[in-house]
Amino acid sequence: MNPLKIKETCLYVHDLEEAKRFYNKVLGLSIISYVNGKHIFFRAGSSVLLCFNPEDSILKTTPQAHYGSGKLHFAFEVAEAEYLQVKDEIKSKGISIYC
Rank of each mutant, 00 (worst) to 15 (best):
V13A: 02
V13Y: 01
V13C: 08
H14I: 02
D15L: 13
L16T: 02
E18G: 02
A19I: 03
K20L: 15
R21G: 03
R21A: 03
F22L: 03
Y23R: 10
N24T: 06
N24M: 09
N24F: 05
K25M: 05
K25L: 03
V26H: 09
S30E: 15
I31D: 08
I31M: 13
S33R: 04
S33A: 06
S33L: 08
V35P: 00
V35F: 06
N36M: 03
N36V: 08
N36T: 05
N36R: 13
N36P: 12
G37M: 04
K38R: 05
K38E: 02
K38N: 00
K38P: 00
H39D: 01
H39C: 01
H39E: 08
H39L: 07
I40V: 07
F41R: 01
F41K: 01
F42G: 00
F42N: 05
R43Y: 05
R43E: 07
G45L: 11
G45D: 07
G45I: 08
G45K: 02
G45W: 06
S46V: 08
V48Q: 13
L49R: 01
L49P: 00
L49Y: 00
L50R: 10
L50N: 11
C51T: 04
F52E: 02
F52L: 14
F52D: 04
N53L: 07
N53T: 04
P54R: 10
P54V: 04
E55Q: 09
E55F: 05
E55I: 03
E55R: 10
D56N: 07
S57N: 08
S57V: 00
S57R: 10
S57D: 05
S57M: 05
I58Q: 13
I58C: 10
L59I: 04
T61R: 13
T62G: 01
T62K: 12
T62A: 04
P63W: 01
P63E: 02
P63L: 00
Q64A: 10
Q64S: 06
Q64I: 07
Y67C: 08
Y67Q: 12
G68L: 04
G68S: 08
G68V: 04
S69I: 01
S69T: 10
S69R: 15
G70A: 05
K71I: 07
K71L: 14
K71Y: 12
K71V: 10
H73P: 00
H73Y: 13
H73A: 11
F74S: 11
F74E: 11
A75K: 09
A75G: 05
A75C: 03
F76A: 09
F76W: 14
E77Y: 09
V78E: 12
V78S: 06
V78Q: 12
E80I: 07
A81H: 11
A81N: 13
E82Q: 15
E82A: 15
Y83G: 05
Y83I: 15
Y83D: 12
Y83E: 13
L84P: 01
V86G: 07
V86S: 04
V86Q: 14
V86D: 07
K87A: 05
K87M: 11
D88S: 15
E89K: 10
E89M: 14
I90A: 03
K91S: 12
